[in-house]
């Protein structure tokens, strides 16, 4: 995949987030501070004005990351911002990226979020969708599946991860203050991540 194929996917992600804004905010209202959808939509709206014409996938990821950090305003800004900047660092200098390039970069993004949020799998965060997605995509790649097949497997695993976030209480962020009352509700960050990955899967041949 080259930058000119990645840029339309980023626009598709921005459109998806805009469309899901109210749903994400509704999820966040229950357990968080109720700003996830609004914040993400604000960030991606600015992203859309900055990515057209960028030369490499790393350039696109870098601009997306920096823009999210400076425009989102909530915890998802530094978290997703760090993730996109880690993708950029890992893919630096490549005109075109393959699934084999993307998978270790995606792991670096996961590590970045874990470091920034001081969090691990099982704490009702976006990591609960990202880590199963990484494992499923890596397994598909090892079996010689196509990028499209691997991404589809990643999306399915991420949605399963979102479902699992309903089964336990949050221990990070504002949601941790509501304690066991967060059980039964899916995590907004895990949800928005999975929606984004679904747009990536939908955007590749």
């Amino acid at each position: 995949m080259k930058a000119n194929e990645l840029i339309p996917i980023m626009h598709a992600i921005a459109a998806r987030i805009e469309k899901e804004k109210d749903f994400l905010t509704e999820l966040d209202n229950v357990i968080g501070d109720g700003d996830h959808g609004i914040n993400m939509a604000r960030g991606f709206k600015v992203v859309e004005t900055k990515i057209d014409g960028l030369a490499t996938p790393a350039d696109v990821f870098k601009v997306v990351g920096m823009t999210l950090v400076s425009t989102v305003g909530g915890a998802s800004g530094p978290l997703y911002g760090t993730a996109f900047m880690k993708l950029a660092q890992s893919l630096m200098g490549k005109e075109e990226i393959t699934l084999g390039d993307f998978l270790p970069a995606f792991r670096a993004a996961i590590d970045g979020i874990s470091m920034r949020g001081r969090s691990h799998q099982g704490e009702k965060t976006m990591l609960d969708a990202m880590i199963p997605a990484a494992e499923a995509m890596e397994a598909a790649n090892a079996e010689g599946k196509s990028a499209k097949e691997a991404l589809d497997a990643g999306v399915a695993a991420a949605w399963a991860g979102v479902e699992i976030t309903k089964t336990y209480a949050a221990t990070k962020g504002r949601a941790s203050y509501v304690g066991d009352r967060s059980i039964g509700h899916q995590d907004p960050g895990a949800t928005s991540f999975t929606q984004m990955l679904e747009e990536v899967a939908g955007g590749i041949a």
Partner: peptide, 10 residues
């Protein structure tokens, strides 16, 4: 707290 800490760190 929260994003204030993470954004300052960035």
């Amino acid at each position: 707290m929260g994003s204030a800490v993470m954004t300052a760190e960035m």
